[in-house]
């Protein structure tokens, strides 16, 4: 069986075939806001950093650069695998392979979030807290904002996975989820370079 067709009411009674499906289009519009949101956080961070006498503050712990590099790799791989799942879904519809690829991508995404969680716990125990310095404040707000996006996206994709199992997933919903995950993965390396490396 192919993917489910758009069918429920209200999905646009339009008499036209849109160039970009509704759900994908909606997510793209949302991403515009998201990009501006992260740009604002990052520029606020860069301004504060530029004005600081010493950066990072000498009495604050250093961020785990190598471990996070590994985790970054995991996240990037999850996007590649999700891309493969998308291709498989488009070509073969509901198939075992699609489900397996999707599940693998979800697993890698979850690994990323959990790994980050452990790193946070360690940093907290080393004395880097939200209130310990503006270094800490920015770290937790920026990286936390990204983590929230990742968790939200994973929850959404888990729902899509269930729908796929029930053979009710529509191609455009899947693609919308995919596009959002690309965004979550895409901003991460930028955050990594700006927050961890420089």
């Amino acid at each position: 069986m192919r993917y489910a067709e758009a069918s429920y009411s209200g999905e646009g009674g339009a008499a036209r075939e849109p160039a970009i499906a509704n759900s994908v289009f909606g997510v793209l519009v949302f991403i515009v806001t998201e990009v501006m949101f992260f740009i604002a956080l990052i520029s606020a961070f860069l301004v504060t950093k530029a004005n600081a006498l010493q950066w990072p503050p000498p009495d604050q712990p250093r961020l785990p650069i190598a471990a996070t590099a590994f985790n970054t790799l995991v996240l990037l791989v999850s996007a590649v695998i999700l891309f493969q799942a998308g291709k498989a879904f488009q070509r073969e519809g509901f198939a075992k392979r699609t489900e397996q690829l999707f599940l693998l991508a979800l697993g890698l995404g979850t690994f990323f979030v959990v790994f980050q969680g452990f790193e946070w716990a360690r940093l907290l125990s080393f004395g880097l807290t939200l209130q310990s310095s503006s270094y800490g404040s920015f770290f937790y707000v920026i990286i936390g904002a990204h983590a929230l996006h990742a968790v939200g996206a994973l929850a959404g994709m888990a729902r899509l996975y269930i729908k796929m199992k029930q053979r009710q997933l529509r191609l455009q919903s899947f693609q919308a989820g995919l596009v959002f995950w690309y965004f979550v993965v895409g901003v991460w390396p930028i955050l990594y370079v700006l927050v961890y490396l420089t």
Partner: peptide, 17 residues
């Protein structure tokens, strides 16, 4: 609105903190 509101939300989060 969509393109300009992101920075306000970012600021609001920081201010709320």
């Amino acid at each position: 609105f969509m393109a300009s509101v992101g920075p306000l939300v970012a600021g609001a989060v920081m201010l709320f903190f």
